Computed example of a mutant assay.
Amino acid sequence: MADYLLLPAKDEAENLPWILERARAVGLIPVVCDDGSRGGTAEIARQHGAVVLVHEENLGLAQAIRTLLSFALAQGKPGDLFLIMDADGTMDPALFPEMHRALWKHHAEVVIASRFRGGGTQGLGLLRRFFSQMARTYFSPHIPHPLHSSR
Rank of each mutant, 00 (worst) to 15 (best):
Y4T: 08
A9P: 12
K10F: 13
L16S: 01
I19W: 06
R22S: 10
V26P: 05
P30T: 09
V31A: 08
C33R: 06
S37Y: 04
S37F: 04
G39H: 11
T41H: 11
T41F: 14
A42H: 04
E43W: 02
A45P: 06
A45M: 05
R46F: 00
R46V: 09
H48F: 15
A50T: 14
A50Y: 03
N58P: 14
L59D: 01
G60E: 15
Q63A: 14
I65N: 07
R66D: 15
T67Y: 10
T67R: 15
L73F: 03
L73Q: 12
A74C: 14
K77L: 14
K77G: 06
D80M: 12
F82R: 02
I84S: 12
D86A: 13
A87Q: 08
M91G: 11
A94Y: 09
A94V: 04
A94T: 15
E98S: 03
M99V: 01
R101C: 00
A102G: 03
A102Y: 07
A102D: 07
A102T: 04
A102F: 10
L103K: 00
W104C: 00
K105W: 00
K105F: 05
H106S: 07
A108S: 13
E109A: 06
I112A: 14
S114F: 13
T121P: 00
Q133C: 06
A135P: 02
F139H: 13
S140Y: 11
P141K: 10
P141H: 07
P144E: 01
S149V: 09
